[in-house]
Computed example of a mutant assay.
Amino acid sequence: MNTAAAILSAAQAVVPRLAKALSDRNLSLATAESCTGGLIGHLLTNQPGSSRWFLGGVVAYADSAKAGLLGVPPKTLSARGAVSEETVLAMAEGARRTLGAACAVAVSGIAGPDGGTPEKPVGTVWMAFATPEETTAQSFLFTGEREEIKAKTAAAALGNLLARLAEADE
């Protein structure tokens, strides 16, 4: 099994616990994905019964899609860029609003091998997590080839959302 496949296998193992956390609180989930291109939604829908809590996702790869489908302000995109805290926060809130979900996860990053800069190197990923309690964002710097970075991003998004839901239950 290659590295990306192993990471995705571990990520898939998180989904039943995430499903239980959402179901126990009667919460729904939406996704807003850029650099993962729908991979998070794919992992979620591999879970039997996911239609009870997963409403859908928006793959907004281009800035125009982020603005048009998720309501990310064009000024935010031009001033801060697609890979920024402000953008993923707007993406998460846009996914919640667009799909009518209680929770959302949003990701935007640079999977490579091109596109990195000294300020935002390849592997830079911003994620936002929207729950009924709060919407927060976090940055990550992943290493590896494109496929690995995408897998690490999806795994981190699922794991971090589960952790935030668990914290809210405490």
Rank of each mutant, 00 (worst) to 15 (best):
L141W: 09
S139I: 01
A155H: 15
R146V: 04
T135Q: 01
A155D: 13
E148I: 00
T135K: 02
T143H: 06
A156I: 12
S139R: 11
K152Q: 15
A157I: 14
G159L: 09
T135P: 03
A156M: 13
A156C: 14
L158G: 10
A157K: 14
F142A: 00
A137T: 01
A155Y: 11
A151R: 14
T136H: 01
T135C: 01
A154D: 14
A154R: 12
K152C: 15
F140A: 12
L141T: 00
A128W: 08
L158R: 13
E145C: 02
S139W: 02
Q138R: 12
Q138A: 11
G144C: 04
E133W: 09
R146I: 07
K152A: 15
F142D: 05
A157R: 14
A155R: 15
T131E: 11
G144Y: 05
E147C: 02
A151D: 12
F140D: 10
E134T: 08
K152L: 15
E148F: 07
L141A: 02
E134V: 08
K150H: 12
F129L: 02
T135D: 04
T131S: 13
R146W: 10
A151I: 13
F140Y: 14
A130K: 06
L158H: 13
A154H: 14
A154P: 14
E148C: 04
E133D: 12
S139K: 11
E148W: 01
T136W: 04
P132N: 10
E133V: 08
A156R: 15
T143R: 03
T135H: 00
F129K: 03
A155E: 14
A128Y: 06
I149E: 11
T136F: 00
T153D: 11
L141R: 04
T131F: 05
A130W: 09
R146S: 07
A155N: 09
E145S: 09
A137Y: 10
L158T: 07
E145P: 01
T136G: 02
I149M: 10
A128P: 07
F142W: 03
F140M: 10
